[in-house]
Design a protein around this nucleic acid. Sequence first.
RNA 1: GGGCCGUUAACUCAGUUGGAAGAGUAUCUGCCUUUUAAGCAGAGAGUCGCUGGUUCGAGCCCAGCACGGCCCA
Length: 496
Amino acid sequence: MDKKSDIIEKRKKKLLDLKKGNINLYPNDFVVSHSVGDIKKAIEEAPDYLAEDDPVFAVAGRMMAINRFGKASFIRFRDRTGQLQAYVRKDKIGDKAYNLFKQLDIGDFVGLSGGMFKTRTGEWTLLVKELKLVCKSARPLPEKFHGLKDPEKRYRRRHIDLIMNSDVRDIFIKRSRIIQAMRTFLLDRDFLEVETPMMQTVPGGAEATPFVTHHNALGMDLFLRIAPELYLKRLVIGGFERVFEINRSFRNEGVSTRHNPEFTMLEFYQAYARYDDLMDLTEEMLCHLARNLTGSTSIQYQGNIIDLGVKWRRISLASALEEFGGIDAGLLNDRKGLLEFASSNRIKVTKTGRLGKIVTKLFDVLVEPKLLQPTFVTGYPVEVSPLSRRSDISPELTDRFELFIAGHEIANGFSELNDPNDQKERFLQQVADREAGDKEAHYMDKDYIEALEYGMPPTAGEGIGIDRLAMLFTDSPSIREVILFPHMKPVERDKG
RNA sequence: GGGCCGUUAACUCAGUUGGAAGAGUAUCUGCCUUUUAAGCAGAGAGUCGCUGGUUCGAGCCCAGCACGGCCCA
């Protein structure tokens, strides 16, 4: 796969020469006593205590820069906890070790032992007494000023991106902390973390096109899940009254700055709660997250200040369409009028689609981008909410909300439909829609209906898009910036 | 699916009207024991994304394709 590259050819020849000189390029015997972080802590705690000879630190890391001065050199190296400078002198480490060191490159891993001293410019530096090669790098790192910038190369070779770009490292550390904080938030409230099938015989829980795969031994097709919802609710039926899952779902759709074919969701279900309880819980959770991550409930996203600390607005779908979309509420049941409105505003809607589909499409285009501050939208029509409980006040609407922040859909939650007969009717309607050409309509899931017949206590459930949340908290404009290995088309490599 | 932009050395990027492919970093050689974008002197390094076309001549113009970015659907 390699193109012939002068610099890489030379590097590989150097590795061969070192090997011929009986140098182990990949040893496994350097014992680390301290991390860079440990050493920095020691400096902070007792700087007067440090002397060149005592204590001795054994630390390992990747060399990121080398300044050579003939018989002495400064190097910068890094481990997971940070970066440190070291001073390597021929008269300290000996001729043999120094000659080996001269053969080493930026990007190599070294093990260093020595004490700390302060340079003329006052920088704490490791005075190396012993230097060992820990792992040889066979490829050069990108340039030190600009690093790796090309987005395609960054995504395809994320390992280099992570080596070179500390802001990228920070994004993924933050993402991990978001997930960790959500997990502890729910565990503290007596939720049980579970894992449900990713390969399903009937894909359910969302309107989306699934990926199909095949089980050879069983001789059957399986679907990668589009949501874990129906399995999590089976667990509620089974008596796990509070469950959550943080994991991947898969949707066979286009790729964009907001969509990746595989994405991460938190879904949680709480028996005896209602959808408005979950709105409260969500506010609390995201404020908890923000304080945890930044110490504040105010976050900056793409030039906008988002304030999570004030009571979030709650608005019905109809009012939102009226206020932000300029659609008269009286028009919402007028199919013909809505279609005319759509075409005069150059919004493409499927004309054969059902009324609720047209309404939500108009919402997506006209309202969603305008919802910068956190906003719960409620009152979704039954026909676009086939798993939600009907509103007791208006049976054509559901006890459901979606959460929007910074113009992105972040969460979707509702009181769960636990009437098996109503659920069956909803599935039948979905099946009819599917037969009429709606490829995203739900499948009939008889097994789930049967489970409901055993009785599911009144329950509210919610899904939160972790990737979108990570975008928000890391001020990332694209979902690819918060997914370690975003989906990329394969590129044809040179043969041989 | 559509529009705009990009693809040149390992990396970041220049490249004039179409007339002998450049810089910095990195690499290699020499000097250098307190540098920190170290310094000085020298050297090597390219399928200009791919395939065609126009032309005496193409990195540059045209067409198609691939991959990517942004926007729209």
